[in-house]
Design a protein around this nucleic acid. Structure first.
Lengths: 110, 110
DNA sequence: TATTTATATTGCAATATTACGATATAAAGA
DNA sequence: TCTTTATATCGTAATATTGCAATATAAATA
């Protein structure tokens, strides 16, 4: 089918999945890493940085933006992109829970 | 095309993407959350917990296992699953970097 | 206004993912 | 051994994702 049974899961579970899925592509990891390195940049810089055509990069940027992981603001005729706390803040809580659990567990099973 | 240009990205970028992608489905988020709650359980428990058929759950478990996010050990004729530190440890470094960056940045752009 | 520059959108082909019924496998117990 | 129980695998249909050429849009500049 290819269709996820979204309606059977909680809103939180769906939100976390959308965020993780948006991060789950090497090009989008590379974009996030580049934005950390240069703080902010225009789309064209990322096109030069990645081995992908401009429409493909534009599409990846759109997905990151939809997930709330980056944001863009107009700067002349270009668009300046940078990381968006909103998305990363949401997913941070989940990983904090996992890490806290793993630290206390100390492998008592499996 | 649907095919990711894996070879053009670094090994680290591909690894992180695989981990995030594995987490990026509400059923797999639910499985992780359930394992945190009950520490460890057999596949059948998860089938009862989720609104999905047994083969579908089995497939999700396989993906989480391949990514190194869960591990399973035989227990009689059942298999006991629990979280695997390995995968979560790898992705933790990435989110630590992002969070450290975001805390120091204080919104000076976009 | 015409051109250039920067980005987004459309359309499409190739591939991947999701879900599940049917079936296989493998250990446990009768 | 036969049956039950638990999980995995196969096959397949429906849908989603990835990537790009072609094209559209929109601001800047000549």
């Amino acid at each position: 089918m290819g269709i996820t049974k979204t309606e059977h899961f909680s809103e939180e579970q769906n939100e976390l999945a959308i965020l993780a899925k948006a991060i789950g592509h090497p090009a989008r990891i590379a974009i996030i890493q580049h934005l950390i390195k240069v703080n902010s940049c225009v789309c064209g810089d990322i096109v030069n940085e990645l081995p992908l055509a401009q429409p493909t990069v534009s599409q990846h940027l759109k997905e990151l933006k939809n997930a709330g992981l980056i944001k863009g603001s107009f700067e002349g005729n270009a668009i300046c992109y940078c990381l968006d706390e909103k998305g990363f803040h949401k997913i941070r809580g989940f990983f904090n829970q996992v890490n806290t659990y793993l630290e206390n567990k100390k492998n008592q099973c499996c």
